[in-house]
Amino acid sequence: MALNVVATTKPIPEPDEASQPFFDGARAGKLMLMRCAECGEFRMPARMHCDACLATATEWVEASGRGTVRTFGVMHQKYHAGFLEETPYNLAVVELEEGPRLVTNIVETANAAIAVGMPVTVAFTDYEDVSLPKFRPA
């Protein structure tokens, strides 16, 4: 799949051992979630123990990519140089259809058009060595 790499000075994460499948999936355009192999509860973020049953067995599943905006804000404060050009920028908590929540940004729409409860779908942004899930109006 062709990448459209965006140059940035934002603080972009790098994978750690627990999250490697998440980042591998994102690079391939798939939103991957860690799930408990014993009770089926999702783990967010990826980690050793299930917070429902404390089991350590895991599996990774591809999420639908569909969710709703649980809440959002529009940042005006200039905290980090990597965001200056786009300030004020939105950030949002998206609750996935499967239940887990992701902190993300809503793309391909104006900040003023974002609303709590709005249906959204995943749209990956490709940075130099990782891709991250963002969401656009469904």
Binding site: I12, P13, D16, F83, V103
Partner: peptide
């Protein structure tokens, strides 16, 4: 750089 999925927070601002 932030490590792992916790870094999604800072990446989103």
């Amino acid at each position: 750089r932030p490590k792992g999925m916790a870094g999604l927070y800072t990446a989103a601002g």
